[in-house]
């Protein structure tokens, strides 16, 4: 599964069926060209000290720091409170929990409100203007208010991630349910489906491909919001570690944070796509 999914990520899904598999494999290698080139450039730039290693530590230094982050012995601490060596699992767990809890809550609230908007024109007329206005508020603009309401730390971080993750789900669910063809609903009614089961028999499956896209966007956004949330005075989390590393001038540790964010983001999207693949297969070209 993972190989096929990786292929999907690196190569935009083309219309080609099985016969073009060999070509697709070639294309997958193509997706590695740019990262390899970047890595090589990075190596050359830091090796010849074109840029100071304080500004851009070399790939080797970062790799060592990455290994230390996850497997080192827990002894030194940075800025007195945020540990680095061996603290990878702890920071990662904190970020993942924060992101996961807020994202799930956003999915729940977004789905319910989205369904309401999609199924009821009254709800749409009532809520659409205000929701669109709130949606236009930049995420960072919520941060001061979140800090006032929830104080420095966990609460503010979760609130920010929640707000960031909410809109894509809400909009996707609302649009997708509003767009379910009337013909499908009528067919289901005519075949004897009671009204109260329509949402499960027709609306949900019909809307799922669009909803899954919304979920993916939302998860990626939630994960990007983690860093914003973790700037609000938390002492655990990948973002908190990066913040502390910046303060102590450990650029290689900042880069480790970026690598971890990228890897986890990619992995989370792969997992979500894997889990939802069977619900959306019918809608693929």
């Amino acid at each position: 599964m993972s190989a096929a999914l990786l292929e999907d990520v690196l190569v935009p899904a083309g219309p080609g069926p099985a016969h073009s598999r060999a070509r697709r494999r070639g294309r997958r290698l193509l997706g590695l060209v740019v990262p390899v080139l970047l890595l090589a450039t990075w190596y050359v730039v830091s090796d010849r000290e074109i840029l100071s290693t304080r500004l851009l530590p070399g790939p080797g230094t970062v790799a060592t720091a990455l290994a230390e982050f996850f497997t080192g012995d827990r002894n030194d601490t940075l800025a007195g409170v945020v540990p680095f060596t061996g603290a990878g699992p702890e920071h990662l767990a904190a970020s993942l929990t924060r992101c996961g809890v807020s994202w799930l809550l956003a999915v729940l609230v977004g789905s319910v409100v989205g369904l309401l908007l999609g199924l009821s024109s009254l709800a749409r007329d009532l809520l659409d203007p205000i929701l669109n206005a709130l949606r236009a508020v930049p995420l960072f603009a919520w941060l001061p208010l979140a800090l006032v309401w929830f104080g420095l730390g966990e609460g503010a971080a979760r609130a920010i991630i929640f707000v960031g993750a909410l809109w894509p789900v809400l909009v996707a669910v609302g649009d997708a349910t509003a767009r379910v063809p009337r013909g499908h609903v009528e067919t289901a009614r005519m075949l004897g489906t009671p009204r109260r089961w329509l949402w499960r028999k027709v609306y949900l499956p019909s809307a799922l491909p669009e909803v899954v896209t919304g979920l993916r966007l939302s998860l990626t956004l939630a994960w990007t919001c983690v860093i914003v949330g973790e700037l609000s005075g938390t002492d655990r989390g990948v973002g908190a570690m990066m913040s502390a590393a910046r303060e102590t001038g450990r650029t290689e540790q900042v880069v480790v944070g970026i690598v971890v964010f990228a890897a986890v983001g990619l992995l989370a999207d792969l997992v979500l796509r894997g889990v939802t693949a069977r619900w959306v297969r019918w809608s693929r070209a």
Partner: peptide, 27 residues
Amino acid sequence: PSADRGMVAQAGGLFPWLTLRDNLAFG
């Protein structure tokens, strides 16, 4: 509408997300 009057339109009423078997089993 009810299950005692089955209607088929020009574009058909098959649900695109269900296999043929599940479509026939829907009613």
